[in-house]
Computed example of a mutant assay.
Amino acid sequence: MSVKNLKTANDHIFDHYTRVGEIISEKFSPYLEVIIHDLRNPEHSIIAIFNSHITGRKIGDGTSDIGYKKLANELPDKIVNYENKSPSGSKMKSSSLTIRDEHNKIIGSMAFNFDLAPFENIQEFFNTITKTNISQLGDFPKQEQFFMWDIRDELEQELNKYIIANRLQGKALTKKDKLNVVSIMNKRGHIKKRGSVSILSELLAITRPTLYKYIKDIDSG
Rank of each mutant, 00 (worst) to 15 (best):
D11W: 01
I66H: 06
P87R: 05
L203G: 05
D77E: 15
I163H: 06
P76V: 12
F126D: 00
I134W: 09
I79K: 04
I199L: 12
I49M: 01
L155V: 07
D38N: 15
D115R: 01
N160F: 05
E158Y: 08
E74T: 06
F146D: 04
G170H: 06
I66R: 04
H190W: 11
N186D: 10
K187Q: 15
P42H: 05
I163W: 00
E102M: 10
N113R: 07
F125D: 02
L168P: 03
A205P: 00
Y31N: 12
H190T: 06
H16R: 05
T130D: 05
M1V: 11
E33K: 03
R40H: 09
R208G: 01
I13T: 11
L155W: 15
H53L: 04
N73I: 06
I151W: 02
K193E: 14
A48D: 10
R57D: 00
K213A: 14
K27I: 11
V20H: 03
F119K: 03
M110P: 01
S88A: 13
I129E: 00
N51L: 08
S95R: 07
V34C: 13
I35D: 02
E33H: 12
N180D: 14
M1T: 09
E102L: 13
F14C: 11
L137H: 08
V3F: 03
Q169C: 09
N133F: 14
S201F: 01
K58P: 02
